[in-house]
């Protein structure tokens, strides 16, 4: 049986932790950056996908089919595979700088896959708005686009904030996958330090940094869920 002092030395070496932490935090800035630029793009693309899928205009049927195929394919393949495929593949076809950056295409891969997941969240929200709300809006002479914008989406988005946050927590962690194609973000920096010192403490340090972000985000999600439940007025059954 491994002895506790060995475990402690290998995973919880305080000196190593203190030594690595500045480098880890510095590398983490890249994770935050990737997260910060992919998130708005994901939300925007996902919302467009959800609206396109919900369109009732028969002329737009091919668009609906495209969106369904897109979400099926993007969600049906592991994120890491898309990151390899797009992040390594696209720069490899001979693009000039700065368009051959793995960081760019890795982010694109993340964005494409997550937009498919998030689109489904938005779609669930749009579907949850009762048909009578559309009827009321249309009966006032609002067009279907105006109905979507003023009546359906505001209610739909409010309802999906908690599951949306859930996907954002997920994304925040999956940003680390981009390290596998080169960019030195926190996970990769931790790997470098681990090899240098032959000690796993840098990984533990990286885990702590992630937890420092994801746990508050998760609590915020829970709080939003509770508030949403209270707002919609359904009182708890004992």
């Amino acid at each position: 049986m491994p002895r506790w002092d060995r475990v402690k030395a290998s995973f919880f070496d305080g000196e190593r932790l203190v030594d690595s932490m500045p480098r880890l935090l510095e590398a983490f800035v890249l994770d935050v950056k990737i997260f910060a630029w992919t998130t708005p793009a994901i939300l925007a693309v996902a919302l467009l996908l959800a609206i396109a899928r919900n369109t009732r205009n028969p002329a737009l049927f091919p668009l609906r089919i495209f969106v369904i195929a897109y979400t099926d394919v993007m969600r049906g393949v592991p994120v890491i595979l898309w990151i390899y495929l797009i992040g390594f593949g696209v720069p490899g076809i001979g693009l000039e700088r700065p368009w051959n950056s793995p960081l760019l295409w890795g982010s694109v891969a993340l964005g494409l896959t997550y937009s498919a997941y998030v689109a489904e969240v938005f779609r669930a929200g749009i579907d949850s708005v009762h048909e009578s709300q559309r009827a009321a809006a249309r009966s006032l002479g609002l067009s279907s686009a105006q109905t979507m914008r003023h009546v359906v989406l505001p209610q739909a988005i409010r309802r999906v904030v908690p599951p949306l946050m859930n996907d954002m927590v997920s994304l925040q962690k999956d940003v680390a996958l981009v390290s596998l194609i080169g960019p030195i973000e926190i996970l990769r920096q931790a790997g470098i330090d681990k090899s240098k010192f032959a000690n796993f403490t840098p990984y533990v340090g990286a885990a702590l940094v992630f937890l420092a972000i994801t746990i508050p985000l998760t609590r915020l999600t829970d709080w939003l869920l509770t508030r949403e439940r209270e707002r919609t007025g359904s009182s708890r059954v004992r």
Binding site: L140, G141, H150
Partner: peptide, 17 residues
């Protein structure tokens, strides 16, 4: 849409926003 401006409807279940 222009017709609906001229013909209003009130629903059984109110359907307020």
């Amino acid at each position: 849409n222009p017709i609906r401006r001229r013909v209003g409807i009130v629903f059984q279940s109110f359907n307020l926003f």
